[in-house]
């Protein structure tokens, strides 16, 4: 347990807790609006920014932020061209992000840095990255807290929300922006390929157990933090990749919850 006394591990725990709260917060809305593939598309889009950052010696998290924001608004643009086949846009962004990252990966000097972004390296979070993670996580929490009614209304029925005076365009724009930020700060820590773990699985677990919308949000944040801390602890004890352990813990927990619920119904 001495490992938890090291500053890098303490930074890792704080970063993991912040991200494991921020991702389920946006994940709840993403899941209820049936936009789960969008999170995946954006995380793949962030790979391009990370590769760009590593190639040109810019902080990869900054590269991920720019690439994810670009991907988010390109996604909306393509979605507008195929209004009845919106899933096409997510596939295109995924292909573009992975394609550009693959091209640039040939120019990345340190292969280990690139792998760290694919599968996460929460223990390598720097002080400046931790500050950025803190600012983004707090912004997301504040936005969700002060706009919960609008987000619930739009997740439930966007057409009725618009009729009742919710400015759906503005809410969508800000939410997409925060979603892109959440994805980009998580790319290096959780791993670009594993972001959906903390975005989709905690709300999915909460939906199995919660008794209200607000309860669903609180429960999903609790699940996210539980997965993150379990992942860090197990990975530290057995020298495994934290992002992978967090992901496996989340899926196993969801399966256990589903089995227990089915068992009770029989």
């Amino acid at each position: 347990m001495r490992i938890f006394l090291y500053p890098f591990m303490q930074r890792a725990i704080i970063a993991a807790l912040l991200i494991s709260a921020a991702l389920p917060l946006v994940g709840n809305i993403v899941v209820l609006r049936r936009l789960s593939p969008v999170g995946d598309a954006l995380s793949h889009g962030s790979l391009f920014g990370v590769a760009l950052g590593l190639c040109f010696g810019v902080n990869p998290v900054l590269g991920a932020v720019l690439a994810t924001l670009f991907s988010a608004f390109l996604l909306e643009f393509i979605r507008g061209a195929f209004p009845k086949y919106s899933e096409i846009s997510t596939s295109i962004i995924m292909s573009l992000g992975v394609g550009l990252a693959a091209v640039l990966s040939g120019f990345v000097k340190s292969r280990a840095d690139f792998d760290a972004v694919l599968f996460g390296s929460v223990v390598a979070v720097s002080d400046i990255e931790l500050v950025f993670i803190f600012l983004v996580s707090v912004s997301i929490a504040l936005y969700i807290f002060f706009n919960l009614n609008e987000l619930l209304y739009m997740a439930f029925d966007e057409e009725s929300a618009a009729v009742s005076g919710v400015n759906c365009k503005r809410v969508n724009f800000i939410f997409t922006f925060l979603l892109a930020l959440a994805v980009s700060i998580s790319a290096k820590t959780v791993g670009a390929l594993l972001i959906s773990t903390l975005m989709v699985i905690p709300p999915a677990c909460a939906m199995q157990l919660s008794k209200s919308f607000k309860g669903n949000i609180i429960l999903s944040v609790a699940f996210g933090m539980f997965f993150a801390l379990t992942g860090l602890l197990v990975s530290a004890l057995f020298d495994l990749k934290p992002g992978g352990v967090i992901s496996v813990t989340g899926v196993l927990t969801l399966i256990v919850i589903i089995l227990i619920r089915r068992g009770r119904k029989i």
């Binding site: 209820l32 619930l152 997740a155 439930f156 909460a206 939906m207 919660s210 008794k211 209200s212 919308f213 607000k214 309860g215 669903n216």
Partner: peptide
């Protein structure tokens, strides 16, 4: 499956 109560 929407997780909201009648009151919400």
């Amino acid at each position: 499956a929407f997780p909201a109560t009648a009151a919400e």
